[in-house]
């Protein structure tokens, strides 16, 4: 069997396309590269969606946390504390058990004339449940970053905005928000990298991998268990993740340059790769 055939069979295995059965014997390097690479689709899916939804919630949370109104501030502070103070692993387990508790048949909401049934069983599957956890988690972490950036906006810029007569939404959109983004971006890059790494936890917590459609690490572990040889699959997974990290750094670097384009070159903050490691 040539390598191209294997790629054809297993390239999309992780999303349920192609060959149903995983290889049993003769694990070639090609098998390992293909399957682990196909698992990466899930990591990308979780990472990209959680990051892009989380971005908006994080902005809202950061503003709420900086707000003077305690009815806004307190819930935001608690949300951030709970999600940053506890292990993501436990969050996954707890979320899974909570979602399992929802009635299988769905929740009936009586609306007088008709009853609206909300299906809930799909929430227990990884693609939805884990995504929700990751989304909330990254929102909390990014909110903290954005909040820190919001607090360190130079006083002069705010005074200048006031002097121009900008208030409310206009002031926020034209002055505060761009500066906040600019200041937060290096840390936010790390957060993004670290979120992609966290996606590997999904299939090791309660969420089941349906029909063995797992992520990159799931397949790496599969091979390591089958061959009793950890020295091949894990470095392959590591290799993929290093590529992913490099791609992320490039992408975020481009955005960083755009955010800082009005500044003289010397003051441009260089992106430093310092991924924080575990949540």
């Amino acid at each position: 069997m040539s390598c191209l055939e294997i790629i054809g069979d297993y390239g999309l295995r992780s999303i349920g396309l192609g060959e149903r059965l995983l290889p049993r014997t003769d694990f070639t390097l090609c098998h390992q590269f293909t399957l682990i690479g196909s698992g990466l689709i899930w990591n990308l899916y979780f990472g990209i969606l959680a990051l892009s939804f989380g971005f908006f919630l994080a902005n809202a949370l950061a503003l709420a946390k900086a707000s003077r109104n305690p009815w806004l501030r307190k819930p935001a502070e608690w949300f951030v504390f709970v999600f940053r103070g506890s292990p993501l692993f436990i969050q996954f387990f707890l979320a899974y058990e909570l979602l399992v508790l929802l009635p299988r048949a769905g929740i009936d909401i009586p609306l007088g004339v008709t009853t609206l049934t909300i299906a809930t069983s799909w929430l227990t599957s990884a693609w939805a449940g884990a995504l929700i956890v990751l989304f909330l988690n990254t929102a909390a972490y990014s909110a903290q970053i954005f909040y820190g950036a919001l607090q360190s906006i130079p006083k002069g810029e705010i005074e200048a905005a006031d002097a121009y007569g900008l208030t409310g939404w206009n002031k926020f959109r034209r002055v505060l928000w761009p500066t906040m983004m600019r200041l937060a971006w290096p840390s936010y890059t790390n957060e993004a990298i670290f979120l992609f790494h966290a996606t590997t936890l999904v299939f090791f917590s309660g969420f089941p991998a349906l029909r063995q459609n797992g992520d990159a690490l799931y397949y790496a572990k599969f091979f390591a268990d089958k061959t009793f040889n950890p020295f091949v699959p894990y470095p392959i997974a590591a290799f993929y993740f290093i590529l992913l990290t490099l791609a992320l750094i490039t992408l975020f670097g481009v955005i960083n340059r755009r955010l800082n384009r009005h500044l003289p070159g010397a003051r441009t903050a260089r992106l430093k790769v310092r991924p924080q490691i575990i949540r």
């Binding site: 790494h197 590997t200 936890l201 090791f204 690490l217 390591a224 290093i242 990290t245 790769v273 490691i277």
Partner: peptide, 20 residues
Amino acid sequence: MVRGVPDIVFFLFVPVALDQ
């Protein structure tokens, strides 16, 4: 080593490697 690679990879890899 730890930059760019998810920590869980290490958590799965190191014990088996050490053991073997």
